[in-house]
Design a protein around this nucleic acid. Structure first.
Lengths: 341, 341
DNA sequence: TTATATTGCGCAACCGATTACACATTATGT
DNA sequence: ACATAATGTGTAATCGGTTGCGCAATATAA
């Protein structure tokens, strides 16, 4: 039953020509006659020939595969980015190999190793939360393989990156809360020193100050930003003598936690406390009230990353200067922050 | 800057031995002396040697890559399955290549082609909703490459599969609604003739009949089971003279739509209408009330699929008989179906 | 008509690792 | 002491395409 896979040599034998001619014919080489090309194509069809990418990859030193490293594909944000990458990549005959690190540093290092051994032509990655040391990414760079970081990037690495303007997103979100009448706005941020969270914190702070509101550190709560963290952070806020009347969270999950706790305490959202999160995950529109959030245009992030990759592989090794693309986020206002006037 | 990648030949030259000895030393071949092995390992380290999997793949005819085909990774169910596969696969030095078809038939066919050309050692797949013709999967089988289907499987294909007992899941869900006092239970099912949906419908039907409740076709609504479909289906139900007092949906998204519409119409959930969905997606616990659902133990599905793959690759070509693993689902009861007695 | 281009295709090396087979050396058995 | 076995390493082919170089045949130019 197992069909013997045909090679170009099989085709060549059948036509009494050489494999090199077949190879050229299949690639539409200008020096091959039209008849030969037609004949080759016909027999290729007949023999059910499927090119062996591995052989080509070995010879060419390029696998036509882009490695993608994400913490998890199980999030609208990351899966949309992947989709955005695929859109562009497939158009240029590249396939993608998606790898999940589950935010685990060891797994991330192992993944880079695996992709390197698989000889991918490029890597598009967003590193995990644990990642402090970037030697594994450096290794990719040293190999001369294009590396593009997105969302969570690292400026010291001197590689191209695609990010959104986290500062702006946070600024808009906070400003919106202020416009809705909030005067004591809390902020959930991450304990780690990841730039996106630092930027979001900065945006929050600036918006407050620009609107003559005090920046109060007791209202800034650090955590891992998961659901449970959102819950406990909110409980912490409720214990304050002066409770906040708005929360802007740097994540999507933690604001869900906040909403849960507020409802359990019979605190009206958005009237007593208005909420805005970050990242337009599916579930943010399913809660009651639905959650306002910062949309990151993840598909476009993927598009941009893939485009940079294509530029880099096609550029001369040395000439390429790392570029940083910053996309503008958009505030999506839903019920959790829209007070009736 | 671009480090020249070292090969076994470089190591060999440095040690005045041949590449074959190096190759053997690295693979811990019994006929190589301990000293040589040590020396090889040391210089491999020094030269920062990374094995070229592509070369090995070409020679061995095995890439050590498992191709995974899913409609989308952006769902807890599929991403958990992938995780389950990775758990097992990584333990046996296999890497995975995740491909998304977005439920698009052409993309699915192209993906199979791509994986075949990439010479993956096996394919674990869940086909798209559009897929009626399975010739592309047949092609994998004909190549002698292990193919394991999960969730959405196809019995005619005669390949191994891992599924859950959809009948049982649906039966349990429906029975639970009956126990909660529901007497007119509606069901959302898919228009396509996909077996999982047929089985769920059957489970629903059996549970009704076993409990002496009539099976009423006007309460069974076919759609694509997306959010909007859930909304319109529910609106349709509300127009009935005799409204249902419970809904069991074969999908997670559509039951969210149902909840939305019921709330908009001030119908109490679960007291007036109780709801149960299928698939324990993240968001099902974030709605208000939270949604009861059928948990599919997706991680285990992935584990099982990967295990079958390993058995198949290690088995003699012909000896392997396709096996079908059926896992038991579990009913998760949340607020949307739990009536206070 | 002779010189130069162009066309069409073959030859053979190559990518990097793997492995059957061969061979020399040393160890073990009787 | 001699036959046999075990040990350690080298030789060379192989996986399937790709491509620089070369050569002959035909076409174009001068």
């Amino acid at each position: 039953m197992k069909k013997e896979k045909a090679t170009i040599h099989d085709i060549a034998r059948k036509l009494n020509i050489t494999a090199s001619t077949v190879s050229r014919a299949l690639k539409d080489h200008p020096r091959i006659s039209a008849e030969t090309k037609k004949a080759v194509q016909k027999t290729a069809q007949k023999l059910n020939y499927q090119p062996n990418h591995i052989a080509a990859a070995l010879r060419n030193g390029k696998s036509k595969i882009i490695g993608i490293i994400v913490p998890t594909a199980d999030r609208s944000f990351f899966s949309s980015v992947v989709r955005g990458i695929e859109e562009i990549a497939n158009g240029s005959q590249y396939n993608v190999m998606i790898c999940q690190t589950y935010d685990n540093y060891e797994k991330e290092v192992a993944t880079v190793e695996a992709l390197l051994n698989a000889r991918v032509d490029g890597v598009i990655a967003s590193h995990g939360k644990e990642t402090q040391n970037f030697d594994h990414f450096l290794k990719i760079k040293e190999r001369g393989i294009p590396l593009i970081l997105f969302d969570r990037s690292n400026d010291e690495l001197e590689v191209s990156s695609v990010v959104i303007d986290d500062f702006l997103g946070a600024y808009k979100a906070t400003e919106h809360l202020i416009q809705q009448g909030c005067r004591r706005i809390a902020h959930f941020t991450n304990t780690r020193k990841i730039s996106i969270f630092k930027e979001r914190l900065r945006g929050y702070r600036e918006a407050l100050l620009d609107n003559k509101l005090p920046y109060d550190e007791t209202l800034v709560i650090e955590s891992n930003l998961q659901l449970e963290d959102g819950r406990s952070s909110t409980e912490q806020l409720l214990k304050l003598r002066e409770r906040p009347d708005g929360i802007f969270s740097a994540s999507a999950l933690s604001i869900v936690g906040a909403l849960q706790v507020l409802k359990e305490n019979n605190i009206a959202v958005p009237d007593q406390v208005a909420l805005v999160g970050f990242s337009n995950e599916t579930y943010t529109s399913f809660t009651d009230p639905s959650l306002s959030t910062v949309e990151q245009h993840s598909m476009r992030i993927g598009n941009a990353a893939a485009e940079i990759f294509l530029e880099e592989v096609n550029a001369d090794q040395k000439k390429f200067i790392p570029q940083k693309i910053v996309l503008k986020p958009e505030l999506i206002i839903r019920q959790s922050s829209l007070r009736k006037k």
